[in-house]
Design a protein around this nucleic acid. Structure first.
Lengths: 379, 379
DNA sequence: GGGTGGTTTGAATCCTCTT
DNA sequence: TAAGAGGATTCAAACCACC
């Protein structure tokens, strides 16, 4: 890992020709992102500040007509500055993001509503909001409110047209004991050994996120070898988990003390090996086998009959891999899917699991034959 | 209970001299609220249209069609139209609200960020965001996202200066088995007997909220005898729970069919009824710990091996908490349960007791690690 | 009557590739 | 770019039919 600020020639004149990887770039995130090539990163994870000190280059909107004594005025101008900052970094982020990439932001009720609104206004497409339920939140000491026991993440695509975002559905389902993963994640906050402390025992960063949270984010929405950008890197949780999971990272951070802590931390991470990083793949990821292939392979022969799951209805297989079904003068022909749908009076049907062959062990779905062909292809 | 539209002289010329109570006012919520006296209600609960933006039909894997919310009242041309509507009704609502009153809104990621942002822009002061975790949400049928298993509520005061809002801290703590009530509430959706159906057995309202949710809202942020206004009354869950808990209500609703259902429903409520506490509290089951949690917690690492009880067979753990078992050219992958079953040639297997880790004290079932995590959760 | 197994349903921005 | 076709995808709870 390198830190850009330490390298000779740091301080780029213009956009970099290629994407740096596994580095921490020192500086403000907006100018730094401007230097990265467009459409180059696969995922962005952002944990932006919400107690933002006003930046010099972010001008306050002119509110001279409003009575400056009113509390709402300060409130509004603070929000306006925060919104302008949010809009700016999100625009920079989208430029860097691949069209089919994903973006995550995390926040609390102080800022998450503004983040979500601006995401929508900029044309990002929200895929989920995710609730991080803290198992061990700080109690509300005054007893004047509910204990603030969660934070909210938003997962978004850069546009509504982006349909090919990464989502490792089958891996996450396996991860969750064969139940599909829900939008609420129960995880402890970052404490104990994991929480970075300085020599005096004080925490290095006020809002260090737990690695378990990033583990789930990266496992669900990136593939091994992809690159994740974190524009508010802090002490580098994103980088540490990325390295652990065989993903590349780019961190952007202003504070040298955070950078130092992150570098040491990431250096100590040992990545998992490639086989253990591969993930359960569902049917969608497997090569498509047309039904005709089974006839070519001789696993099904023209003239054979296929049966519905109960073995009551049957259809004839023709040489072109179409089926014919006839009953009571009604006749359907077409693909295994079309005829399967017509037989059931449905709009659609997966013929692979609907149609069965008679075997010594009873009816077996033709999907099994597809596995045979896939095995032969792999060998 | 009276319905304003049925009373002689309905259709008010100007602001009413006093607050009507336990009535349903028929009409649009903004003009109706304009007719209520200023600073007169103690709490507002609002379940506004969510502005769902559905693209087309959705079918379950069994090809049945999902009955989506496509009602006219949920249609907005764009975000700007939704925002203008939201801003308008929130301004009307604040005029009616007592300075130390409270306001609740509920929504999903389609609208909640806009609601929250506009609340902040108008100078409301957010006290908490609350997550309603659904025990039985609709799954994600296409496997393209996380299952949308929660909705979000925002609880706000009308201004940052309002410090004397009602919060029944001790009642809530007692309600929650002497633990401080958290910002995440686990409750089932509204089904069964509670769900209102018409003669033909179809749901009267597409988005009826469970009484348990309103029970918690009213118990926590109103006192007996106070008045709660619901500007999107629907089938009157707010009114029913208010009556049950000895609070007064004002409902505003446009659809006569909803009003009719609400009137009959509220009429049938017996205030003395023992409230449905059992429903609410029965759901505090032990948290489920999927195997993936152990990887997130670092108790198991990708690349480790797990062993059968005799230590003869072993399988590799991957990053998504799947196992890989290979022997004699046969290969199984999947969850701890699936692979455990495959290895033994069984249909099913409890992976938690079958798979073991090698430790200094010999083989230990991974179920032991789950206890470790549960301990951390409890702490 | 009680247990069992199949059916229905719920605020949902829910497919992807080839032609 | 629009149209067509292949074929992948669900969890908890209530309800109902049937022993």
């Amino acid at each position: 890992m390198r830190t850009a600020s330490k390298r000779p020639g740091a301080g780029f004149a213009s956009v970099l020709p290629s994407l740096p990887r596994d580095v921490i770039l020192k500086g403000d995130c907006i100018p730094m992102m401007e230097k990265l090539p467009a459409k180059s990163v696969d995922l962005i994870f952002a944990d932006p500040p919400y107690n933002l000190q006003l930046q010099g280059d972010l001008h306050r909107p002119d509110q001279s007509r409003v009575d400056a004594v009113d509390d709402a005025w300060d409130q509004f101008s603070d929000f306006a500055a925060y919104d302008a900052f949010t809009r700016a970094w999100l625009l920079s982020a989208r430029r860097v993001l691949k069209p089919d990439g994903g973006l995550w932001v995390i926040g609390s009720y102080h800022n998450i509503f503004r983040l979500g609104t601006i995401l929508q206004d900029l044309g990002f497409w929200i895929l989920n909001d995710i609730v991080w339920r803290k198992t061990n939140p700080m109690p509300n000491f005054r007893g004047r409110r509910f204990a603030n026991a969660h934070e909210t993440l938003i997962w978004a695509a850069p546009s509504p047209k982006a349909k090919r975002y990464t989502f490792n559905y089958d891996a996450l389902k396996t991860f969750n004991d064969d139940l599909q993963m829900r939008s609420d994640w129960t995880l402890p906050i970052c404490t104990g050994e994991e929480r970075l402390k300085d020599e005096t025992g004080r925490k290095v960063h006020p809002t260090q996120k737990p690695e378990s949270l990033l583990y789930r984010v990266l496992l669900s929405t990136t593939k091994p070898g992809e690159t994740v950008l974190d524009p508010f890197f802090g002490t580098g949780t994103t980088g540490a988990v990325a390295k652990k999971l065989g993903r590349h990272f780019i961190g952007i951070e202003r504070e040298q003390s955070y950078i130092d802590a992150a570098e040491a931390r990431i250096e100590a991470v040992r990545p998992a090996d490639a086989p253990s990083l591969s993930v359960v793949q569902g049917k969608r990821a497997q090569p498509r086998i047309p039904f005709g292939t089974l006839l070519e392979a001789g696993l099904v022969k023209p003239g054979e009959r296929l049966y519905d799951p109960k073995g009551r209805l049957s259809a004839l297989v023709r040489a072109d891999a179409s089926l014919i079904y006839e009953k009571d003068g009604r006749r359907h022909e077409g693909s295994i899917h079309r005829v399967g749908a017509a037989v059931q009076g449905l709009e659609a049907c997966n013929g692979w699991v609907f149609w069965h062959m008679r075997t010594k062990e009873g009816l077996k779905p033709i999907d099994c034959l597809r596995d045979t062909v896939r095995g032969a292809l792999a060998a």
